[in-house]
Design a protein around this nucleic acid. Structure first.
Length: 198
DNA sequence: TCTACGATCTTT
DNA sequence: AAGATCGTAGAT
């Protein structure tokens, strides 16, 4: 199955976030189904890494859509984002949780022998399952080979709610319902604050 | 250079 | 409830 075309990623970031639910991430023999995401916009979004403008770290957010933006969080966790919108407009979708489709043995090995929903619910765990590091930042996801994003089954029902871990942002941006998850999936990091999207 | 602090996870 | 752990951003 070929990766999704770059045009798939060229749309408003919250819209792309929802569209990514159900899609697949492939790296080598590991395939994951995306079950939970968060949208982060440009400088106008006080929760976004883009809030201080363009830097070496967040440069992929300003680049073309459909590229990886990987950064290290708390000195430990490699977080995977997918860039959205046209070049010049900073935006990215954080992948917060996935369901394993293939390569479960490798995932379990990387996570120290553990399996089950908890092993892929949480953005740091997604990075660990794929063995990502910041060297992947900027990588195009619409080309075969390496890290890529494939089409998948769209979820029937979607949950939405405020983003997690952004206490530093303005109240309005904290309230923005830009976190989305596949309803009825056990592969979600936190159900708290999520409500069914109409 | 120097300092403060994370879009987290695990353990207590 | 708190520690791990280190790159990045902003200040000096």
């Amino acid at each position: 199955m070929p990766p999704l075309p770059q045009s798939f990623f060229d749309r408003p970031v919250a819209e792309l976030a929802r569209a990514l639910l159900g899609c697949r991430i492939r790296l080598g023999s590991v395939i994951l189904r995306i079950t939970e995401v968060e949208a982060y916009a440009g400088p106008e979004d006080s929760a976004s890494h883009a809030r201080f403008g363009s830097t070496d770290r967040n440069a992929p957010m300003w680049g073309p859509p459909g590229h990886a933006y990987v950064y290290l969080c708390y000195g430990i966790h490699n977080m995977l984002n997918i860039t959205a919108e046209a070049p010049g407009r900073a935006a990215a979708v954080l992948i917060r949780a996935c369901e394993p489709i293939a390569g479960l043995e490798q995932i379990v090995r990387r996570r120290g022998g553990r399996a089950g929903p908890a092993s892929l619910a949480g953005p740091g765990k997604v990075g660990a399952a794929l063995e990502l590091d910041t060297g992947w930042s900027g990588h195009p996801l619409y080309e075969s080979g390496g890290l890529s994003v494939l089409a998948g089954e769209r979820p029937v029902r979607v949950l939405a709610g405020p983003r997690v871990g952004i206490d530093f942002a303005s109240p309005a941006d904290q309230a923005r319902p830009w976190r989305f998850a596949v309803a009825d999936s056990p592969w979600v990091s936190q159900r708290r604050g999520l409500e069914l999207l109409r």
